[in-house]
Design a protein around this nucleic acid. Structure first.
Lengths: 152, 152
DNA sequence: ATGGACCCTGTAGCGACTACAGGTTCAAGG
DNA sequence: CCTTGAACCTGTAGTCGCTACAGGGTCCAT
């Protein structure tokens, strides 16, 4: 499934997995992984079993990489792709997914900023040297827990 | 190793793992996990094999949780703890570790802010509805990849 | 003595890859 | 046509920091 835009290999040039890797910047192992978990479709094969990709695969893999670079989970990417493949998603759904992810991103930023402040304060407190009491260690023992989740 | 401040169970009250969990907010399974990977020491046991903790364990586990909440990796926590345990670390080393982590945190914040901007722009572009062309999908296909690593 | 809350060990799963081992195929040069 | 070596194949296991079982044993109040 999720293969309806991929009827067989591409029309023009056939790319090996190594070529696809080079032209998308995506690791070979990762490409095979994407195939296994079915976000990339099974490509055509040579007689000897080597994978053969076309332009549609380049496009799709770039989409996946771009989505991942924006922090979308592979599950969400799958949903976005099923929209691309002409599933029953609406544009509203896509926007909603984007807004949810935007919210999560903003929460992470806020958490990290709290952490940043605490770390900067701790580091500033420490004059260095080989003092018996390290203010950073003290802070870690005694401080009230300051931040939310560590960035997961 | 890493047990020199823990000669046997604590002086006063003995806590069960559940009590330790409640009073530190750390999951029971996580406490056992910390013991297995040797960031928490093996505690004393009852005749029947139940773990018995003392105040030193509460202190140490709180330290670990606080460090984790600030985003330090368990490997770094191990290093910080070996300082606590009187290893050969200096206060300078601790400050250096903190500054490295502060740098990483700031880098993550910067990355996430780039991502935030792109997501916000994409979402703003989309008017919703059930249009054939979704601008978000278009952007994911065509946009130049805007950000660094997704927050890992 | 008994019930039920608690605890024990060991193993497997998550997400998103990455890294092998041990074998096969492809393409270019001789 | 044959050889070489780079590229490819499958399958499995490891990473990090937990979390979630299954299938049992212990503790303590009644």
């Amino acid at each position: 499934m999720a293969t309806n835009t991929f009827s067989g290999a591409a029309s023009d040039t056939a790319l090996s997995i190594g070529a696809l890797s080079r032209c998308t910047g995506c690791n070979i192992e990762t490409i095979r992984y994407y195939e296994r978990i079915e976000v990339m479709p099974e490509p055509a094969r040579t007689a000897g079993g080597h994978r053969q990709y076309g332009q549609a695969h380049v496009r799709r893999l770039s989409f996946i990489r771009r989505s991942r670079a924006l922090g979308f989970s592979l599950d969400t990417v799958r949903a976005l792709l099923s929209f691309v493949d002409g599933g029953e998603w609406t544009c509203d759904d896509v926007q909603a997914m984007t807004l949810v992810h935007l919210g999560e991103t903003r929460r992470k930023i806020a958490d990290l900023r709290k952490i940043e402040r605490v770390l900067a304060d701790m580091a500033a407190e420490c004059a260095g040297g080989t003092v018996p009491d390290c203010p950073i260690i003290e802070a870690l023992f005694e401080g009230a827990s300051p931040a939310a989740e560590p960035a997961p």
